[in-house]
Each structure stands twice: as structure tokens, then as C-alpha cells.
Design a protein around this nucleic acid. Structure first.
Lengths: 142, 142
DNA sequence: TGGTCAAATCGTAATATTTACGATTTACAA
DNA sequence: TTGTAAATCGTAAATATTACGATTTGACCA
């Protein structure tokens, strides 16, 4: 998922092209890590001082729906990162401090054979949590 | 984890034995599924009309710390179930409607060899989400 | 058994996150 | 250029969680 792809996705689905949306996509692309709504808001308010909650949350939901970003949640907050991997399904090691990630190619669903009884599967989550070296280093000096 | 074990854990760690704590443990034991704080509150207010938020949240945190319950979160809400499995580490298929679960013995961490570079691992989550037959049936008739 | 004290709980307020909505602005196409 | 629906703003409401002083209660000991 690069910026052009993302902006095309918006266009193809009849959504308007706005500076805020472009910046938001660009932001996710540049950061390459999980961001909370608040982080997105803060980072964007450098350029758009009056940016509204509504805009951020609405666009986050839209981007997730279109597959521009992928979402998860931990520590009671919803978080998003640029949708990575294209077609190849994979998972992440995630730094719970800063949201940085590292891809894991292994998907445990491949080892689950058939449908389990009494459940219609709708999704799954496999995430490894940790502290990245950058955050570890930062903690040491704190 | 049965009720006596749980109440012993409280005693052994110097916490007091109260009717509310006993009922809370019993509730998790009987339900055997993930419950939100609100569900716990509602279910307990049958017997304790004036039950406080504070009591529920504080005890949920305590129970999780003592290993009486295990927690996770989805749909923006923290949820808890009785800690199952004793020593045997495992995961769950979870009905996102009602919180009912089914154990999965497979743990994908066994297939991860060594420590990944640049991350100090602190935890992991593998959950399969779905709709259980009971909820599916209920939806049909709705 | 009764008294003491710290823990537990209550009642309520504060905080934080997310969602909602009328009013206004803006992108886009005719 | 102009009309229209979408996007955004500004703000409020809804929801979940945490916090805290006041009060009650369980556990221990004399």
C-alpha cells in the first residue's frame, strides 16, 4: 500500500480528495507504525490547527474499511497502521510503547484444520507484544 | 481454577473475604465466558442493588493480577473470563456476540524460534473470533 | 466477645476515548 | 461558474474507565 494506491482507492470508491486525507495517508505511510487517533490528531495539527476529532475518526474508519489502514487495539485504545503486505497475509510483533512493528510471516490459522464445531469463524488475531530496542534504550536513560 | 482455589488465592495474598468477591468469582465460574465490567455489574446487581463501579473494576483488576481471571479486549471493551486451563497454556475461539469460548491447544509461539532482533518480547495474543451457534440461531429469529 | 484498624465499598466526580450532529465549507461535475 | 452532495468544523453526547473522600465491614487480637 503506497500513497498513490491509497488515494486511488478513495477516488475509485467515489470519495473526495482532500488535503487532510492526503496528509493522513502520507502520515501513516511515513510513520509505518501503529498510531492512535490522538496521535494522528496531534501530528496533523501542525499543519491543520483546527482539525476536528470527527474528521480523524471518520477517516480512520473509512481508511480501515477501504483497506488503506489496518486496525487493532491494546491498552484500551484503538490503533491503526498503513495496511502492509498487499496480498500476503501476515501478522506482527508490536512494540506496545511506540507502535513500531515487525512482520511475522507465520499465520497460525494454517495449522487449524477445518471449521471448529459450534462456531462460524469471522476473524482472528495473532500479535506478539514487546518493547523495541529504541524504547528500551529510552527507558534506560529515563 | 475453581471457586475454592480462587477464594484461597485471595486469602493467601492477604485480601479479605467478602460476599461480593465470592459472588463475583462464582459468577465467572458459572458463566464460563468473557464478561465486560458492565455485564458483571448488571448480573450482580440482582443480589447487590447498590453495587459500585469501583468495586467491580477494582476486583476485576485484582482477580486478573492474582490469576483468577484472564482478560482481553475487543470492540473497545475490556473483558474477563475465569482463568481456565490451570498450568496448560492455550488460546481461545471466542464468540464476539456473547463471549462464549472454546479452547485451542495450539500455541503459535511454539513455532517462533529464538528471540526476534530488536524486540524484547513481553506477551502475545492468539484469538479466533466467530459467532457461536446459539448466537447465530438467535440472529436468525430476530 | 468486643474493640481496633486497615481494607473494602459506596457514591459520585473526573478523565479519556469514541460517536453524534447541526451548521458551514469545499470538492467535483455539469 | 454554479449546484449539490460530501467533508469538515465546533461542540455536545455517549461510553468506558479511573479516582477519591466518606463510610462500612472483615479479620485479628486482647
Amino acid at each position: 500500500m503506497d500513497i498513490k494506491q491509497a488515494l486511488n482507492l478513495l477516488k475509485q470508491n467515489g470519495y473526495k480528495y482532500t488535503g487532510k486525507r492526503e496528509m493522513m495517508v502520507q502520515l501513516f505511510f511515513e510513520e509505518g507504525r501503529y498510531l492512535t487517533a490522538k496521535e494522528v490528531l496531534d501530528l496533523m495539527q501542525k499543519d491543520y490547527p483546527g482539525l476536528s476529532f470527527d474528521t480523524v475518526y471518520r477517516n480512520l474508519a473509512l481508511f480501515e474499511q477501504l483497506g488503506i489502514v489496518e486496525g487493532t487495539e491494546w491498552n484500551g485504545e484503538r490503533r491503526y497502521r498503513i495496511h502492509c503486505g498487499g496480498d500476503s497475509h501476515h501478522h506482527h510483533i508490536i512494540c506496545t510503547e511506540c507502535g513500531r512493528t515487525r512482520a511475522i510471516e507465520l499465520c497460525p490459522m494454517k495449522a487449524i484444520f477445518g471449521q471448529p464445531e459450534n462456531f462460524e469463524i469471522t476473524g482472528h488475531k495473532f500479535e506478539i507484544y514487546g518493547i523495541c530496542v529504541e524504547c528500551k534504550e529510552y527507558e534506560k536513560n529515563a
